[in-house]
């Protein structure tokens, strides 16, 4: 089982305590009425789905219950780093 480091609890905890929240750093549009259909499609549905480093959201559902972000390799499933919500993604991470 994968161990995930919660940046709030500062502990490595088993994967079953966490829920996955999809790709990270997708900004909600500030002026939704100004978006055209193509921009809505991109915001709602288009995902990077990379083979390699992936910036993604996780939630420590059975712990502190807070959302945080992680960089994980989608080929090895190895977590490179986890960081608190609102912090910048480390350099070189996928979108």
């Amino acid at each position: 089982m994968i161990l995930i480091h919660c940046p709030y609890c500062e502990e490595d905890r088993p994967e079953v305590e966490f829920t996955y929240g999809g790709q990270a750093h997708i900004a909600r549009p500030l002026d939704p009425a100004a978006l055209d259909d193509a921009e809505w499609e991109s915001f709602l549905y288009i995902r990077s789905n990379p083979r390699g480093r992936h910036a993604e959201r996780w939630r420590h559902a059975h712990g502190c219950a807070r959302f945080f972000n992680a960089i994980r390799d989608t080929v090895t499933d190895r977590f490179e780093v986890t960081y608190k919500a609102g912090e910048q993604a480390p350099d070189g991470a996928a979108r």
Binding site: M1, I2, E15, V16, T19, Y20, Q23, R47, N49, R51, H54, E56, R72, T74, V75, T76, D77
Partner: peptide, 13 residues
């Protein structure tokens, strides 16, 4: 499994 992956294996739970 719950997360995006190309590993062709999943979690035991």
């Amino acid at each position: 499994d719950q997360y995006v992956s190309y590993s062709q294996r999943g979690a035991l739970h």
